[in-house]
Design a protein around this nucleic acid. Structure first.
Lengths: 208, 208
DNA sequence: GTCTATATCGAGATAGAC
DNA sequence: GTCTATCTCGATATAGAC
């Protein structure tokens, strides 16, 4: 095992992806830059381009990892939620909030418009697997098969909404922890799912 | 009334704010820049700085207008929703989706972190009025006063989640119109509000 | 009140040394 | 495989002419 002559020889690719996550978690996609990632690892701004041809490919690798890890987080949360299909789907919203808050890599990164023309088979597989997992959870919880997609959208929308507002500091009232926010997202998703696809009527359908 | 010798004499300030909205609606906060706003009006990149000392002050003016207009849109939607307090609050989620999709100026712009240290009394007034309107709607619909804030947060989170995913192209399946997305947000909010603050239990609390 | 011109900066990306 | 050096570009912001 040769002594490391400079910092990252041989591991820089993986280190760049990890540092990208750290940067996203701290500063968001807005401030993401290849140069900032390089700085964070104390390598030159040219070094990343030995491993990724351009910014989009680095972000694409982040997207691939994020899709994989988010799917794992979702599967784990569904498993922990027990047998009830609605409860399992509701748990997705909480897992989403926790994952995005921890990593900064939500759907806005995984499916970022700037990656649209990127051809990356590994990424396609991971994003596809992520969506399949979500659709499966929704199908199990849904009232009809064709409702699975909008049900997934609704669940993710709730998670994404809470996570985004949290990241933007909207819940800055001192008390709000990530887990609290995640629980609120789960509560909202659970309520929504239980009434899907016809939400409670404006009046009369439920006891006061 | 003097003839306009060059383009915007005397009206550039208002035109800059309007063009900022247009740019936000088309490209989002990510790509917002003072230079792009100037280009859009076919004035020099220096011209905006005669009216706003820096980028933050221009965005602050946009924030002020957005807070005012969003409040008006919300109030109108609540009015159109009738007398039922829960229905009036649910309508907020739909108004939010429509407003943000049309203008690009949601809470992430109105309460942008980069405006945090901006001291602007007009903006403070408008954001304050916006929040007051929201809290009032939630108080009327809420089960307890202290639930008003989290109830507003939940309603906005739903609207913000749908609006963000829509802006990011996640609903790009050809069918999704803005009004459809807004209606789904209202449905989700209505369901949530009707069960607030205790969402339907995982099992047994509601009829299948 | 707007222009042209310019200074500074950060970021993407490449060439060539080591 | 990483470095230094450099090019280009777009954005913020200022100075001074008109």
């Amino acid at each position: 095992m040769p002594a490391k002559r400079s910092y990252h020889h041989g591991e820089l690719r993986a280190a760049l992806i990890q540092a990208s996550f750290d940067l996203l978690a701290e500063s968001g996609l807005q401030r993401f830059s290849v140069a900032a990632v390089a700085r964070r690892l104390a390598v030159s701004t040219a070094a990343p381009y030995r491993h990724f041809p351009d910014r989009a490919h680095l972000l694409g690798a982040v997207s691939t990892t994020a899709a994989h890890d988010l799917r794992a987080a979702i599967a784990e949360a569904a498993g922990a939620a027990g047998e009830n299909p609605a409860e399992r789907l509701a748990a997705v919203a909480g897992a989403y909030v926790r994952y995005v808050t921890r990593t900064g890599a939500g759907f806005h990164v995984i499916f970022a418009a700037e990656l649209y023309q990127l051809h990356d088979e590994a990424r396609r597989e991971q994003t596809s697997a992520l969506m399949t997992t979500l659709i499966d959870l929704a199908t199990a919880a849904g009232r009809a098969y064709r409702e699975a997609v909008p049900l997934v959208e609704a669940t993710i929308a709730i998670g994404h909404g809470y996570a985004s507002l949290y990241a933007d500091g909207f819940f800055a009232r001192k008390d709000a922890t990530v887990d609290e926010i995640a629980n609120r997202a789960v509560d909202a998703a659970r309520t929504l799912i239980s009434d899907w696809p016809r939400p409670g009527a404006p009046a009369g359908r439920r006891p006061a």
